[in-house]
Amino acid sequence: MPAPVCVARIGAAHGVRGAVKLWTFTEDPLAVKHYGPLLTKDGARQFEVTHVREAKDHLVATFKGVSTRDEAERLNGLELYVPRERLPETDDDEYYHADLVGLAAVTTADQPLGKVIAIHNFGAGDIIEIAPAQGVTMLLPFTNAVVPTIDIAGGRVIVELPSEIEGEDGTSPEL
């Protein structure tokens, strides 16, 4: 079963009637209201968007059953997910970040680096996290220069290692 896809993160309470700031990770920010109930990652809780409007750099949303500021404040920081099958299909050259988790990561010289375990964004751009068979995970900028090829059908991503972590012969160091 495909992993659920994170489509939004709840921020601080907005006002006194249970509204929250909502940051979406969808191409169309307002599409979040059309995916049906939004779930926590473990699926234990679900939220139905009852109203949403655009704000400066986020949305302001209300959820069914959340009507006070105190209730809204307890939701701060929750990430909201939907099952992969509820999302639109991607074009041939598109993918969801969740589609990359579990793929093999190899260098441009076809040397194994490990497996993709996550794509993160801490505010300055996407970062790909790769776990080698042994050793410490690598966090690399997820850009076209560092990850020039994504081959979902082939089950791998090709990584152009920055020169400071690449061996002298152009291969990956012992990991």
Rank of each mutant, 00 (worst) to 15 (best):
H97C: 14
V136I: 09
Y96T: 09
P37T: 01
H34N: 15
A31W: 14
L103D: 04
G135L: 08
Q46P: 02
R74G: 00
T26L: 15
G102I: 06
L78E: 00
E85G: 08
R69S: 11
P83L: 06
D42R: 03
L100I: 06
L100T: 13
A98R: 12
I119V: 13
N76E: 07
R84N: 11
T50A: 00
E71N: 01
I119P: 06
L75G: 00
A118T: 12
V146H: 01
W23Y: 09
T26H: 03
P132H: 07
E71L: 09
A118L: 11
P29Y: 06
Y35L: 15
D151V: 06
N144W: 10
P37I: 01
A31K: 14
E129W: 02
E27D: 14
E89V: 10
E79Y: 03
P88S: 08
V147K: 08
E27T: 12
N76F: 01
A118M: 10
F63Q: 00
T90M: 14
H97K: 06
L75H: 00
F142H: 13
D91N: 12
T68K: 03
A145N: 14
L30A: 07
L139C: 09
E129D: 05
F63S: 02
L22R: 01
F142S: 07
T149D: 09
T107L: 05
T107E: 03
V136D: 15
R45T: 00
F63H: 00
F122I: 11
